[in-house]
């Protein structure tokens, strides 16, 4: 399954296997990282795919203007033609236009939820690792407990409670997927907190908050950036599950997962244009973000997930 949905993920890059975390790259380190990233063919292709999809979803409607709000039942279930390149759906929305419209939601929700999860995970992991002792133990057992319940199960339970809007979705997805980044950042923090500069800061009277904000987090930035990229990939995949699990947006709002779920009933009728385009869009974008994450991990030379 997707795992996404979880902790498993194809690990390891096409480049050399990554070594231990070494903290944030300096200016020349950054240039080196860019050079290494640009040498990873899959990662560069991934970046191009992401850029193309953003252009398609956000600039596309300027060229291919369609009505995605009102139904047009006289134009329902049309096959691909000159007027509707990808046909129309069961209530007459132009499917190509809907792919742009739904993609906007999928990309925005995926990005926001991925970033939110990374922020929560980073703060949690840094706090746990820095505090150490029993606070760390309790905080990390909470993370273990969260990982022990697969996200799809939690989402299905939540679907029995509510049908959220876009902001609700971002919040829910962020709250179910911050666990893996918290482990990564904690591991990073454990090595960073014993560095001399942290001890020095404490010795001259700096607060714990300052030690975390000034040294631990900035030095974890490459780990965090890599984790965030994978997090966004997972979140976009989760968004595709959300409608299937009954948490989807209400029409006429939709996302790629909603289009997929709506198209499921058309599987046997031969109306492939209702399921194949949104399915391929999800796969392509998630692959692309994963490839970028892979490239970044090798470029920054940090320990990734997996």
């Amino acid at each position: 399954m997707s795992a996404a949905v979880q902790s498993g993920r194809p690990a390891g890059g096409t480049g050399p296997s990554a070594g231990a975390g070494t903290g944030g790259p300096g200016i020349s380190g950054l240039r080196l990282a860019v050079r290494r990233f640009s040498r990873n063919r899959l990662a560069v292709i991934g970046l191009a795919v992401v850029v193309l999809f953003f252009l398609f979803c956000f600039a596309g409607p300027l060229v291919w203007s369609t009505d995605q709000t009102h139904t047009a039942l006289t134009h329902a279930n049309l096959g691909p033609s000159g007027a509707h390149w990808l046909g129309t759906d069961a209530v007459g929305h132009d499917e190509l236009g809907r792919l742009m419209y739904g993609g906007k939601v999928s990309l925005v929700v995926g990005l926001a939820a991925g970033v939110l999860a990374t922020v929560i995970g980073t703060l949690w992991g840094a706090a746990a690792g820095y505090a150490g002792g029993w606070i760390d133990a309790v905080m990390m057992r909470v993370v273990d407990a969260g990982i022990a319940i697969p996200a799809l199960f939690i989402l299905l339970v939540i679907s029995a409670i509510a049908t959220p809007g876009v902001w609700g979705l971002i919040l829910i997805l962020g709250l179910v997927s911050w666990l893996v980044p918290s482990r990564l950042v904690r591991a990073e923090t454990l090595t960073l907190k014993n560095r001399d500069y942290v001890h020095t800061l404490r010795a001259i009277g700096g607060t714990h908050t300052r030690a975390i904000g000034r040294h631990i987090l900035p030095n974890s930035v490459s780990t965090v950036v890599v984790a965030a990229t994978f997090q966004v990939a997972d979140a976009i995949l989760l968004v595709a599950y959300v409608s299937y699990l009954g948490l989807g947006l209400q029409p006429p709002k939709t996302d790629w997962g909603g289009m997929l779920s709506a198209g499921l009933s058309a599987t046997y009728s031969g109306r492939w244009w209702l399921i194949v385009p949104p399915g391929l869009a999800v796969i392509l974008v998630v692959c692309a973000f994963n490839a970028i994450g892979d490239g970044l991990r090798d470029a920054f030379d940090v320990r990734g997930r997996g």
Binding site: S2, A240, G279
Partner: peptide
């Protein structure tokens, strides 16, 4: 690709 495909799809 296999990793990125929703299982239901």
């Amino acid at each position: 690709v296999a990793y990125s495909t929703p299982v239901y799809f």
